[in-house]
Nucleic acid binder design. Structure first.
Lengths: 114, 114
DNA sequence: TTTTTATGTTACCATATTGTCACGTGACTG
DNA sequence: CAGTCACGTGACAATATGGTAACATAAAAA
């Protein structure tokens, strides 16, 4: 999830997502044409997008095609958007979150007999 | 929008959002207690969250209380999530559909015993 | 084969970000 | 008033990030 937010935290990378939304499966050179950046800069951004799982690639001959993968965005929506927009609808999630937090911070009081 | 992604791109800041979701309107000292960081570190994170509009503050005497503001998340959903998940549906409908689906699927796992 | 095209790798630099330290401000309490 | 208490500001070192340059690989075309 950390990689996802990092990937989204850059205008160039978000523009790449928009470009792929307009036309999925573009190659590096095609994407590069839309930027002032050098090809290597674009490649780095694509690598980050790949690491975040937002972009999947498929090599075919000399070309490497890039495809959008919406799944990470769906997960972000579930975890970091919807629960904050509809608090009453996610009361269950609040409890879940509470339990997760307690686990991260150590066992709760009633388990502390050792 | 750039500030929003920057604000979200840090585990500490996302944890602050979770803390405020559990209990809105906490002061700096209250939030600080949950971190290993120093108070100043937490303050910096809060400033970024404020700049992104995710957290609104209200001073009352010596205390400064912090409140969640879901509006930026709504905007992010409209611009950077929904269009990628359901290209032909409106953003609001996307969230509605999602919540309805969750409801149909019943209670989550951790409530299933007994 | 030679050349061109598309992509990949290593190294490097300028800048931004993270978190801390020291010190300052403003408000309640005794 | 004097003393805490909660919060704020400025400077600083360590690290991460964004972008470039030079060089390398690999597939198609001539």
């Amino acid at each position: 999830m950390d990689m996802l937010f990092k990937a989204l935290n850059d205008p160039a990378r978000r523009e790449i997502l928009d470009l792929l939304r307009q036309k999925d499966g573009q190659s590096l050179s095609q994407l590069e044409a839309h930027f002032d950046m050098t090809r290597f800069g674009v490649m780095k951004h694509l690598k980050l997008l790949e690491d975040a799982g937002l972009v999947l690639t498929r090599k075919h001959g000399r070309f490497k095609y890039h495809y959008l993968n919406p799944l990470p965005l769906q997960e972000m929506l579930d975890r970091w958007v919807a629960p904050f927009l509809q608090p009453q609808a996610s009361a269950v999630n609040a409890l879940k979150l509470k339990l997760e937090t307690e686990t991260r911070m150590g066992k709760p009081d009633f388990m502390m007999q050792t």
